[in-house]
Nucleic acid binder design. Structure first.
Ligand code: FES
Ligand code: FES
Lengths: 144, 144
DNA sequence: CTAAAATAGGATAAAAATATCCGAATTAAA
DNA sequence: TTTAATTCGGATATTTTTATCCTATTTTAG
């Protein structure tokens, strides 16, 4: 469904959000350990998320990654997915036609659109806060 | 969403189904032209579909690919997707955890499951006949 | 039997995704 | 001001996906 990079990116964002709630900055090392992802590769993805204003980085000693507390509830999954995988997964044609067009649909269009629009709603309506809260409560997990 | 190989595989299967309805066998060359896909690559995918009993090949002069008419309505999209991409896309965890487990869910689980199960239903309930019919009627297309 | 028309399948190439490594730049504390 | 702890960014490596090419094998028509 999503690329590995995107999966890591979402998991990392949720982990950072949870820790920012608690006032903690986190390092790529800790992130990759806690979400079970390759460290250097994850670091690249974090850089991309910084550029896309999803997370914030603080350089130098005592630095790390964080998200402004007020922003956590405003960041939608779609923003993260879009920054890493683009929007084709929740906007494009399921059979790979150049674009999904009501007037020139693929044979899967009618049925696929329902599923894909459900995914789009999920991504556009779900914010980092609710996900991070599940993590904090212990009712959801980011690895194993 | 799906891999290129899978997109080509589904489009090719629909095209073959439509032609088998009309009693025509088709070549990889014609298939790739009509679904707008690279010929040699598509041929490999067709071979995989033959091995997985989705389509039938007839070797030698006057050969080509076809699907038994009685089988067309019985072949589900899930069978094609499974043969090429596996079932992770419609059974696996959206955040890439090793498996989707109610008792150890990722933070996206509750919402993602709804979408993913919708996709699973689509794939398991949709058969080649309905798709091929849309193509025949001219109400759906396989390229551009 | 031969020739022509097909699919099958192995070898290879190119591109993209995934992953690692290392030095440069930045920053806070001592 | 020095040092240690960091992120940043470029270079490189590996693996997977996508794609091409060429030969072998099969099969029918003549
Ligand atoms: S045209 Fe294929 S999903 Fe809309
Ligand atoms: S555990 Fe992630 S979707 Fe179910």
């Amino acid at each position: 469904m999503f690329s590995k990079a995107c999966e890591y990116g979402i998991r990392a964002s949720i982990f950072i959000a949870k820790n920012s709630f608690e006032g903690r900055r986190v390092s790529p090392k800790e992130i990759s350990e806690k979400i079970n992802s390759p460290q250097a590769f994850t670091a690249k993805i974090l850089q991309a998320l910084v550029k896309n204003n999803v997370i914030k980085s603080v350089k130098g000693a005592y630095g790390g990654f964080e998200i402004d507390k007020e922003k956590i509830a405003k960041i939608k999954l779609a923003q993260i997915v879009n920054a890493i995988d683009g929007d084709n997964i929740y906007k494009g044609c399921g059979l790979g036609l150049d674009k999904c067009d009501e007037n020139h649909p693929c044979p899967m269009h009618d049925k696929f659109k329902v599923v894909r629009d459900g995914l789009r709603d999920l991504l556009e309506d779900t914010n980092l806060e609710e996900l991070a809260l599940d993590l904090k409560k212990g009712s959801a997990f980011l690895k194993i």
